[in-house]
Amino acid sequence: MLEILIQGRGGQGAQTAGNLLARTFFAEGKYVQSFASYGGARRGTPVNSFLRVDDKPIRLRCSIEHPAAILCFDDSLLQGQLLQFASKDTVIVVNSRRDAEHYASLGDYNIIPIDGIGIAQKNNMGRIVNSALLGSFAGVLHQPSIEMLSQVVEESAPVKKQENVAACEEAFHLTQGVHA
């Protein structure tokens, strides 16, 4: 079973990203279970979106404490509360213009910075980074397929469908050659 945590600040689209990723794995025929923090979330506060993916039905009904991969929308969240979920084996993709060395002081973590805002702006998406970050995450994890992800992004984007797909695919291709 693959367990994933997506964390962002309320309003950045982490929950939407979790739903899109779940829909993509589901469309590939996988069993998925996705849930997000709820009830007390508001704009600006940390929001978690959890996802389990498996080839067989998922029975667990508990929080994910040790995800294999983390997608972080905002590098100001890369601290104790989020890193408690991580070990040195956890793949952490973070939306950041900085390079990996910048995060060395956080400890022995596998942190992969992706310039989500740069890719979004280049594709006329302003500060809407979730399509770009999903593309990079799929590229680093080698799943789900970029074809299925692009299709789901296109179906789901309320506006700027082609721009969303372009940002997603560009981010995916930038990560090819990056070793998780």
């Binding site: 739903n19 779940a22 069993y31 998925v32 996705s34 849930f35 997000a36 709820y38 009904r61």
Partner: peptide, 12 residues
């Protein structure tokens, strides 16, 4: 069914 783990979890 229970809040959160069932009510708000998406699954097939």
């Amino acid at each position: 069914h229970e809040a959160f783990y069932v009510s708000h979890a998406m699954e097939p």
